[in-house]
Computed example of a mutant assay.
Amino acid sequence: MRKRSVGINIRVTVTEKKKVTMLARKCGLSLSEYLRQRALEYEPGGHPPTEVFDVLDRLDEIAESCSPTTSAEIGTCADRMRDLLIGGN
């Protein structure tokens, strides 16, 4: 279960929305996921299987229940895996 509960609203033109929607579809991503990846400096090239995101979400949950040091280590590893799997920097 995702813990995303905060929204970010932006205004775009009809043409901009069509273009961004097309780019998201081309990558096999929802509009929200495409915008999220772009905002986090990922270069979407395709959509990894849903299970990849489920595993990364689970790692974040595990990290939250650990000691601060262990949590930071797990968080760093999970972030690195995101970079490798999703195509980040």
Score class of each variant (00 low, 15 high):
Ile62His: 10
Cys27Ala: 14
Leu56Tyr: 02
Thr21Cys: 07
Ser5Phe: 08
Asp54Val: 09
Thr21Ala: 14
Thr69Met: 15
Cys66Asp: 02
Cys77Asp: 13
Ala24His: 05
Arg38Trp: 03
Pro44His: 08
Met81Glu: 07
Ala39Gly: 13
Pro44Trp: 03
Gly28Arg: 09
Cys77Leu: 15
Glu64Asp: 05
Val55Ser: 06
Thr50Leu: 14
Gly88Asn: 03
Cys66Gly: 02
Glu43Leu: 10
Met22Pro: 04
Lys26Glu: 12
Phe53Arg: 12
Gly87Asp: 08
Phe53Gln: 04
Gly45Cys: 09
Gly7His: 08
Ser65Asn: 14
Asp79Lys: 14
Met81His: 09
Arg82Lys: 13
Leu59Pro: 02
Ser32Asp: 14
Val52Pro: 08
Leu35Trp: 00
Cys77Asn: 13
Ser5Gly: 14
Lys3Asp: 11
Arg4Cys: 07
Ala63Val: 04
Leu31Thr: 09
Tyr42Gly: 05
Leu59Ser: 07
Pro68His: 11
Arg36Ile: 07
Gly75Tyr: 01
Cys27Phe: 09
Ala24Gly: 00
Ser30Arg: 06
Glu43Ser: 08
Lys3Met: 07
Ser67Gly: 15
Leu84Val: 08
Thr15Val: 13
Arg25Lys: 13
Arg80Gln: 08
Gly46Cys: 06
Glu33Gln: 10
Ser65Arg: 15
Leu29Cys: 06
Thr50Trp: 05
Val14Gln: 02
Gly88Cys: 02
Ile74Ser: 04
Ala72Asp: 11
Leu85Asn: 03
Arg58Asp: 12
Phe53Lys: 04
Arg58Glu: 12
Ile74Pro: 10
Leu31Ile: 00
Ile86Met: 10
Phe53Leu: 10
Leu23Phe: 10
Val55Arg: 05
Asn9Gln: 03
Glu64Arg: 14
Pro44Thr: 00
Met81Lys: 02
Thr50Cys: 04
Asp54Arg: 14
Asp60Pro: 02
Lys19Val: 12
Met1Gly: 12
Ser71Val: 03
